[in-house]
Design a protein around this nucleic acid. Structure first.
Lengths: 254, 254
DNA sequence: ATTTTTCGGTGCGATAATCGTACTTACCGT
DNA sequence: ACGGTAAGTACGATTATCGCACCGAAAAAT
């Protein structure tokens, strides 16, 4: 806690509380107080108070001596989703798009140095599922949606992200040279679409298009399927459909 | 703030911070500091610090002098969804169920004195959409899903909820007598399914079935459609399909 | 144009909430 | 029985937090 954050404008206790809440993720869904303390580097006695506060508010449940999130945490995201008319306006468009394509499609927005899924629609004939949900995070540099966000978003931010965003060798094919990533992003910008082959998940192809105007786009619409389901000759048609729906989604997001 | 909460086990600052975060909902998506202060009954100077903390963490964005949620809040719910294998196991089942029925279906769990949507799948031929999203909340007493949760959940909790949960005249047909609600819940228990006609949204019928074992169920699977799309003779078939999928979802939720 | 209201930001002293340490109890597996 | 780990408790020190009051700016009303 020796990082100098001005206590004037920031509430340290609240900061720690949110850190505790974030300690619960896919790999850590059932935690003891001591585990949370280790994960967050916050004093155990303090963690206890913060967790009990979360229990009091209904965000966390205690079972035995482990704690886990309750569905109540979804309410927090619900404020965002309904405030932006996702349920009423965006979701139906995504559904129609998925139906027309016969593939699962997802809508993601930039979130710091990553992208986050904000809406998603599955199709039953999807061969295998990646397990993405609303709230899933994607790397900006190694996914089609991420690169599209970079290509169509604020260019200064994009340059910054290409320089600093997390970059891990997720597969053997992941582009690990940031200059080459920059080139790929530039290609996306000229093409108006992004195709990424096996860099995020081996054997999977991602296709994404921008949602919004060049230079200010905050979202991207895309899909991800096993290579065999997206042969090269199909991709143009897929992109065309995605573009059409992206055009309808853009005005809703403002 | 004169409600006596033991400061021993509860962090008041964190409590207030979460209250501020919750101030953003569908009706209040863009708020000024003063508005938040009024909504939460928290000192404006304090609200400012808490909101700035949220901005610092990326959950809230400032534009002009209004604040609004960012997609980052979805990450909080993502921890719950992926921790419980929703993306991989539950969502596909819901999709298949929706596909088989030709109706939008949703899965909800109990959350205090309400129910909260945890998964949802639309179908394009849905006549009109209710605008529900993951994180949407439903009253326990006036919806089919809510009553099913009461009927199949812990009976002591159910009795308590029937006595105290919010009860508002959402439509002209909403049952406003808690005793009659109790009777309706009892009917749901004997029937193993819940059908609610126009009590939540005028002209809409809700059908729900339990997910889990009698007495301990935490979730319910259901759908809601305009009356014309669910004529009485169809309902038995719908319930049968819902039951079948509920049986598959139950073991996943543990 | 002038007044009134509303809002955001700042400073500071008082207070009470928060923190951290240490001790105790309990549980588990060896 | 014994180490290891975890939860709960107590309490004194400190410091983060609170609340108020003030200021300037902007907006709304007159």
């Amino acid at each position: 806690m020796q990082t100098e954050i001005p206590t004037k404008d920031i509430s340290l206790t609240f900061l720690k509380g949110m850190t505790v809440l974030r300690a619960f993720d896919e790999n850590h869904s059932r935690l003891t107080l001591a585990e949370i303390s280790r994960l967050t580097h916050i004093e155990r006695a303090v963690v206890r108070r913060l967790v009990l506060t979360l229990v009091h508010l209904g965000y966390v449940r205690k079972e035995e001596n482990r704690y886990s999130l309750t569905p109540h945490v979804l309410v927090l995201g619900g404020g965002f989703l309904r405030g932006n008319q996702f349920g009423r306006l965006v979701q139906p468009l995504i559904e129609m798009c998925a139906r027309e394509l016969g593939h699962s499609v997802g809508l993601a927005m930039r979130d710091g140095s990553e992208a986050v899924y904000v809406a998603q629609s599955s199709q039953q004939n999807t061969r295998y599922t990646f397990g993405f949900t609303v709230g899933s995070r994607l790397p900006l540099l190694s996914t089609s949606i991420g690169r599209m966000l970079l290509a169509w978003g604020d260019s200064q931010w994009a340059a910054e992200m290409i320089r600093t965003a997390p970059l891990e060798p997720l597969t053997a094919e992941t582009l690990m040279d940031r200059d080459r990533v920059a080139a790929a992003v530039a290609d996306c910008r000229t093409a108006g679409a992004s195709v990424v082959d096996g860099e995020f998940e081996a054997g999977a192809i991602g296709i994404a298009v921008p949602v919004g105007r060049l230079g200010t786009a905050q979202a991207a619409l895309g899909l991800s399927e096993p290579k065999g389901d997206l042969p090269p000759e199909r991709r143009e048609a897929v992109i065309e459909v995605l573009h059409r729906y992206a055009g309808q989604i853009a005005p809703v997001l403002g």
